Simulated scan of single mutants.
Amino acid sequence: MWAGPLGGRGGPSGGVEFVNLAVSGAQTREVLAEQTPVGLALGPDLVSVVIGVNDTLRCTFDIHAVATRLDEVYGAFTRQGAVLLTACLPDPGATLGLPGALARPLARRQRAVNAVVHALSARYGAVHLHAAEGAWLSERAMWSADRLHPGERGHRQLAVRFHALLAGTGLADGPAPSPEPGFPAPTRAASLWWLATAGTGWVARRCTDLLPQLLGLAADEMRHRARGTSARLDLRASAAVSAALAALSGAERADAV
C-alpha cells in the first residue's frame, strides 16, 4: 500500500507511527461506519481517505450517498485537527480494458465521485492528489494482475507524489520514498494463477452484483449513442453531483443557524 512507504520515509524527523485500517473491497459506507470510529480514537495528526472506486462497482451506487458519507468522514477528522489526504482515482473501466459501452457508464460514475472528492477536499483543506491523471495510468508495470489495483510500483508512484505535495506544504521533512519496488514483480505465470483462483471469485461476485445493472447501463448507452443524445447522460450525471453537493451545503447552513 502507498501509505506504508510514505509513512516510513517522509514523516517528521522524530519518526511516525503508521496504522493501516484499509480493507480490500471497502466502500464509503464501511469507511464511515467501521474505519472512521477506529481512526478517530487513534487521534491521528495525518489521515488518508482514498476511497470511491468500489462504490462505482456496485449496483447500489448512489452519488448522493457517497457525497454524504465522505462529507461526514472528512469533517470528523478535520474537526479533530487531523491533516486530511485525499485523491481522485482512475476510471476502473479504462484500467480493466472494458469495451466502450461498458466502460463509459463506469467512467461517468468515477468522474462523479472525483468531482465530489475535489469539492469536499477544497472545503476541508485537504492535501489532494490528482491520481486520475498522468502517463503512469497506461503503464502495465504499475498495476497488479487484476488491472484494478496498483501493484507495488504503482503504490510507490502514489507515495512519491503524495510526498511531493506534503513537502510542498511543509508537512514532510524526510527523504522521498523510493519509486523502485522492494520485491520482484510477479511473474506472468503467478499473475495468471491468481486470476484463475482468487480472481475468479472476484469476477463471480461482480457478476452477481454489478454485471446485470452494467449491461442495462450499456444498453442505455448504446441507445443514446445511436440517437446522438449521449450528452444527456453526462448532463444527468453532472446534475446529480451538483444536487448532492448543494444538499450538503444546505445542511451545513441549517446546522449553522
Rank of each mutant, 00 (worst) to 15 (best):
L137H: 09
V19Q: 12
L120A: 14
R140N: 07
L85E: 04
T36K: 08
A33H: 14
V83K: 02
L129D: 08
A76C: 04
L102R: 10
P150A: 02
G11M: 13
L166V: 02
Y74R: 00
A159I: 00
G168A: 04
H130T: 05
L96Q: 13
A185Y: 00
F183A: 10
V113N: 05
R227F: 01
P177C: 08
Q27H: 15
G216Y: 03
T36G: 02
R123P: 03
L106Q: 08
L148Y: 06
L171G: 00
R140L: 12
G170T: 04
A76P: 01
D234L: 07
D71L: 02
A67L: 02
R161W: 05
R29T: 15
T197D: 08
V49D: 05
V73W: 01
A239E: 11
G25A: 13
A226S: 09
L84D: 03
E17K: 06
V117I: 15
F162R: 00
L85A: 06
A131T: 02
A131N: 11
S230T: 10
E252T: 10
A172Q: 02
G7P: 10
L248H: 11
Q27V: 15
A119R: 09
A26C: 14
S121C: 14
G199I: 08
E252S: 12
E139V: 14
A41S: 14
A76W: 02
A76V: 03
L129F: 10
L158G: 00
